[in-house]
Design a protein around this nucleic acid. Structure first.
Lengths: 341, 341
DNA sequence: CTCCTTTGATAAAACGTTTTACTCTATTTT
DNA sequence: AAAATAGAGTAAAACGTTTTATCAAAGGAG
């Protein structure tokens, strides 16, 4: 069996209390001689305190629960990484669960994590989660007195602390760049329809169009789903609509466009300009390097960690919502329109 | 405060024991009437048992610790995902830590996770971890009686259960494909030098060359580091050496080759054939789709979960090492050599 | 009427810590 | 010499469960 505090106490002929006091560096009046003895014994016996037992007393697990759709998606993995990094720096561990965008799983992970006693629950809920499900998550969190933090997306109509990104101005900038270049037929590939994130991006597209004196045309909007294939499908559709530029609501769909454009021997950016959204790792490595709207992913993760950590220690429960700015990244996938013969 | 078992016992006017027995569905002789009462009270009070307390008694946390270099690397995230999926199906949660290939962190996470009482510790240790560090990890695990599983790489000279991939035959196949096409000057971009994984791949390269009656030439091997940039650097170097084909020890470095080849207006596969290793998500979406050696990543994750779960329940401690097969994926990045003018 | 069995339920110990309040001895103060 | 103080350390309760051993009441057998 693993070494317990009792073992080290016994080893030095001192009491459990004494050992605990010394090892945790609590105010005490133990002689230097004995302190040394204790440190040595702990070392020698490979004593590792049982966090389980500690948590029992302290009501803290130093653990943060992270619920996200898909760790294999670079956007989320980057976020998870920067968040974990910051948390571990402060002695916190993160446990995570993949929901695969299944709202049922949002709930089961919530329960599991709460039962594990996470100090804070951070959730990036499924795209299609309903208001009812969101409420249930909040209710569970509250019934265990666990702070809840939503990142990347807000809880609809519920007052929950959140960290998100200004998607409207991000996509506005992207599309404005295209109108500035002189494009007049600009296609848009949206993400999952009922997603708030997606609709904010669409709003930015509309606004930029209207500011440039261009009409909004329904047939230039293709309903995608954030995956590569829908980008490919969108390409065929939009190209037939005669667009000279495409704004994709994420980089992955932009890659779908690249793929088919190349197959069809259509040159980017000469024949077709493409702008993405997210600035995932690979965006700069595809050819031509993709012009895109960068989400400050690392910063979101860092910010999330900061906020989670502060929620973990203070009981002060006012909700707070942080909105971060995107930045426009000009690379080589856009050019003035090339009138087709 | 959160609802405890005491609260629900009080609510129904029954004892703690009774509630525990019923809720855990343990053999008991409680009347149907009272069982119902208990279920209802638990529901009503949003009772979520404290896993911390449960673990105290049962000595099980239903948690698996996963230590890996970088969750933002698609190879690891895919692995982590499939592993987590399988674990959660069996009621296990995974906690994870990013080491950024820093062997010191291998150790700190080991300690943290053991102190949290993980039921199994799964580690993908840093590329550059030394034998001494590996031994320390094993020692710590043993001193807490925690089963240890190594994936993707073996512990050098230490008898630890592991799951890995037959990298030798994978790279042999890749290079044989190139010699079969008629290539005679084939470059190789290796990964981090002292990594066993990398050297196994190099062995496959050598063997395939020799089987085709070709000499092994030191100057056709470029020492990379598994990152994009080193692929780009390798391209310049190898192209000057007059190669007509390149075998990159991972897909990400192959992407570096693509990038610079395109800039230099060198057509893949007409002027240069490229084969990668791993078959990451993006391999099929770049242009031309990358011919590569697929690691059965999902399977590794699944296998890892299976083995971890079995280690968690049985005390039977014989070590076991599993080696999985790679598969060759023919896409469009290779062709017979095109003699340069 | 007494003894045994069955039914339904419970008291209490244990898990490994932290922490509060205490004890005991030796020294100093009056 | 008695009282106060300082110094060094400890006993025991508590955290929320699980589980073993036990108990009381009721019904049946003799």
């Amino acid at each position: 069996m693993a070494t317990t505090i009792k073992d080290v106490a016994h080893e030095c002929g001192l009491s459990i209390t004494t050992v605990s006091l010394v090892l945790n560096n609590k105010p005490n009046r133990i002689s230097e001689k004995n302190k040394q003895k204790i440190f040595e014994a702990a070392q020698k016996l490979n004593y590792i305190p049982s966090q389980t037992a500690v948590s029992m007393k302290t009501k803290k697990t130093n653990t943060i629960g992270l619920i996200l759709p898909d760790i294999n998606n670079n956007y989320f993995s980057e976020l998870a990484k920067s968040m974990e990094e910051e948390c571990s720096l402060h002695g916190y561990t993160v446990i995570y669960g993949n929901t695969s965008d299944n709202p049922k799983k949002d709930l089961t992970y919530t329960t599991t994590f709460l039962s594990k006693g996470v100090d804070v629950l951070v959730v990036i809920h499924s795209n299609i989660s309903s208001l009812k499900e969101q409420k249930k998550i909040l209710e569970l969190a509250q019934s265990t007195n666990t702070p809840l933090l939503s990142i990347d997306r807000e809880f609809e109509k519920i007052d929950v602390s959140s960290i998100s990104v200004d998607r409207f101005s991000g996509s506005y900038q992207a599309v404005k760049h295209l109108t500035d270049l002189g494009h007049t037929r600009i296609g848009c590939i949206t993400g999952t329809n009922h997603s708030k994130r997606s609709s904010q991006r669409l709003q930015g597209y509309k606004q930029a169009l209207s500011d440039a004196g261009l009409p909004f045309e329904d047939e230039l909007v293709y309903s995608g789903d954030f995956h590569v294939e829908s980008g490919s499908d969108a390409f065929f559709y939009l190209w037939n609509q005669g667009v000279t530029a495409i704004f994709a609501c994420n980089d992955v769909m932009a890659m779908g466009v690249y793929l088919e454009a190349r197959r069809a021997n259509i040159d980017i950016p000469r024949d077709l300009s493409v702008v993405g959204f997210d600035d995932i790792f690979f965006a700069k490595y595809i050819y031509p390097p993709l012009t895109t709207v960068a989400q400050p992913i690392t910063e979101i993760g860092y910010e999330a960690a900061q906020q989670a950590l502060s929620m973990a220690s203070s009981t002060h429960a006012s909700t707070k919502s942080t909105i971060l700015k995107t930045s426009f990244v000009l690379r080589e996938s856009t050019a003035p329109p090339n009138i087709r013969k």
